[in-house]
């Protein structure tokens, strides 16, 4: 075993992410329990046939809650990447293509935003915006666009001076067409890899905010609040906190392998 096939990472990532998404979508089919139904006489039960992940302090089925929480956390995780991706790409393209003062301004803003420690500024933004899903989208949109802008800007800067761009402009193509049809497609592979990597960080951020009581609000099941709930019982009823944490871990490894696999794929194609 000296070298595995290059596609192995990609396949592994796809399999893990696919499984988590299917479980979340098919939640009502993979569990017969209601994730919010209280069972006060059936609290704190260890894993068993009827409750594979046990029950929590309110008698709720932990497996059902883990699966239903996946619906929230995966949805928010993927959606929260889109706005930063769009904003960062647009600013990066403009800064890279036009250069000059616009480029200097965009780079200055990027450097300023990057000076704020990620969780510190996200927490401060949540303090302004209040808790809940909408605040998560807004706070992450305000911060996470810089990575995309930086990558696209650096990539575009390299192209802007190349002959084919000048040729395309000289041939009568509009700026918008040159950027949209010729420069942007070159950045797409890198953007996809970055966005998939970002899903890992965004899901972590959502789960962390929820753990701190500043993210997804109960009773909506979410992995972070579940871990917080289970923290008090961890020495005796470990399953309440351990399973939702494993769900975050497995999901994150999946997206991370997927990003690695995609990066390998693009590298080989070039």
């Amino acid at each position: 075993m000296t070298s595995t096939r290059p596609g192995a990472t990609l396949v592994a990532g796809l399999a893990v992410v696919g499984t988590m998404i299917v479980l979340a979508i098919a939640a009502p089919l993979v569990t017969g329990h209601d994730p919010t139904a209280l069972g006060l006489t059936a609290g704190l039960q260890p894993p068993s046939w009827s409750h594979p992940f046990g029950t929590d302090q309110l008698g709720r089925d932990v497996w059902a809650r883990v699966v239903y929480a996946g619906r929230t956390d995966l949805r928010v995780g993927v959606l929260a990447v889109l706005a930063p991706l769009a904003v960062g790409t647009l600013l990066g393209l403009l800064a890279g293509y036009f250069g000059g003062p616009l480029d200097r301004v965009v780079r200055f803003v990027i450097d300023t935003v990057m000076a704020f420690p990620f969780y510190v500024i996200v927490l401060a933004l949540v303090a302004v915006l209040g808790t809940g899903e909408r605040s998560i989208y807004l706070a992450l949109a305000a911060v996470a666009w810089v990575n995309y802008a930086r990558v696209v800007r650096n990539g575009t800067r390299g192209f802007a001076g190349e002959n084919w761009v000048a040729a395309a402009r000289g041939g009568g193509l509009s700026r918008r067409r040159v950027i949209g049809r010729h420069i942007l497609p070159n950045a797409v592979p890198q953007l996809i890899v970055l966005a998939v990597t970002d899903v890992v960080f965004v899901i972590l951020a959502i789960v962390t905010l929820s753990y701190l009581g500043l993210g997804i609000r109960p009773p909506t099941p979410d992995w972070g609040t579940m871990i917080f709930d289970g923290q008090a019982f961890v020495t005796t009823q470990w399953w309440i906190a351990v399973f939702p944490g494993l769900a975050v871990l497995v999901t994150g490894i999946g997206f991370s392998l997927l990003a690695d696999g995609l990066a390998d794929l693009y590298r080989e194609r070039d």
Binding site: T208, I227, G245, V248, L249, G252, L257
Partner: peptide, 11 residues
């Protein structure tokens, strides 16, 4: 990958 994905508070 696991190091990136693991929530610090859970670890």
């Amino acid at each position: 990958s696991a190091g990136i994905a693991v929530p610090a508070f859970w670890l």
